[in-house]
Design a protein around this nucleic acid. Sequence first.
DNA 1: CAAACTGTTCTCACTCAGTGAGAACCGCTT
DNA 2: AAGCGGTTCTCACTGAGTGAGAACAGTTTG
Lengths: 256, 256
Amino acid sequence: MGEPEQVRGASVTSRALSVLGAFEGSSGSLTVARIAARAKLPLSTTYRMVHELEEWGGLRKGSDGKYQVGFRIWELGQLAGRRLRDRAHPFLQDLFDLTHENVHLAIREGTQSLYVDKIYSSRKMPQVSRIGGRLPLHATAVGRVLLAAQPDWFVDAYLQRELEAPTAKTVTDPRILTQLIADVRRDGYSITIEQMRMNALSVALPVVFNGQTVSALGLVFEAHRYREVQRFMPQLRGTVDRIEFAMAGRPLTIGE
Amino acid sequence: MGEPEQVRGASVTSRALSVLGAFEGSSGSLTVARIAARAKLPLSTTYRMVHELEEWGGLRKGSDGKYQVGFRIWELGQLAGRRLRDRAHPFLQDLFDLTHENVHLAIREGTQSLYVDKIYSSRKMPQVSRIGGRLPLHATAVGRVLLAAQPDWFVDAYLQRELEAPTAKTVTDPRILTQLIADVRRDGYSITIEQMRMNALSVALPVVFNGQTVSALGLVFEAHRYREVQRFMPQLRGTVDRIEFAMAGRPLTIGE
DNA sequence: CAAACTGTTCTCACTCAGTGAGAACCGCTT
DNA sequence: AAGCGGTTCTCACTGAGTGAGAACAGTTTG
């Protein structure tokens, strides 16, 4: 009939999670009605859910009556992937001190790279990637490093799909990309020029732990400065070494 | 009988949230059995919940079979208080570049300060506060600034309780603290010495938006360098000004 | 200023999804 | 081979969740 949508088998928990999921994408604040629409739930159900989540601290009602994600979720989120983020962070900061270029650390989540940490100052605000943000795997240096770490069947399947082209220069031809991925595997690093944004260049290296590429460390700066890549490479290499060493060690910080 | 515990009126949603809440405090990974114990839920119920959360991406099963908070929660959390964190961050980094001392930004959550951002490198690892961590309001400079912004009834109620003393020097006498809070209100800043950790000094200023203290900006360094406070003060002041200005403006970054 | 919207809050009888005791199972240690 | 700590799954019972809809509130419109 065209309107069952949020069909059946929807467990209470999944409904509650749908409410939270409604905030993904369209950030900022939402009215109960809009949450209901995005979560594809009846208004009264949404209303109840929202209140329960609010009471718990998962949602927060703004002064305008709209709801936002609450700090309790944020706090909980800080526990995710803590080992990697905690161990890596100080060295990312060291690298920034050295280079004063945008530094980032990303992991793979499905078919995208997820930016888990990022260092930047007010001089060079990030343009496309943000902490907690996602970008496609084929159009950034960190993405290609993460893609290159996957088995062939994954890479092939990834490249088989319709690939987005954020700039006019973005490579989307599967055959060329296959070659580029092979290069990344051989060289142990990736350099992309104007693939995600014009006038931007990025370099990235894999961070390996227990024989697995767990994340990618990258640097982004203006494309015309491509000659400086060689200057940054040893610093990137050194940073990765330190992160990998720190990952292996026992905890140094307080609390677990 | 002595064993009702997780009595009644427990909604399904609240149970699911209890499962997530089980990860608060004892970070790292938990077995299903331990989650059940912490959440005070029957094992089979917990089992079901955990699976549903895992499927959604809220929990992640590690290679050791234990569960951890998943990145989906982390991503969601990035939406909480985004305005403040996004606008303030670049200026915190600028301040760090200038001073190379630990910089932090905290908000008040209940009777504690919650550290929402923090800049540090490998040279000076944070000792007590961590991003996503909480500390009492009376024992840090940021905490006192946040406390001073509250109405008298709140301050009085807060000071009436049993106050923890992390160091031998921590002031817990309500009368002295009342005076110190008055000083903070008069001066517009707070300086605490060895209140949270020996050999540590912290300075903090309030960040005001729409006439409300929304957070506190702080700097921490070694107690014996207390003379340098005056050197840092104008830099702190300038950073706060820039944050407040940025908070007022329209979004500069992508995606509202 | 009434009518038409858009959104919020709440009620209530029905019923289906959630429940949790318990059994089976799986690796370990001793 | 018995014990232990953990996981996974089943199933009959029932009360918690459901959602249509009514009442209400605020704001836009002709």
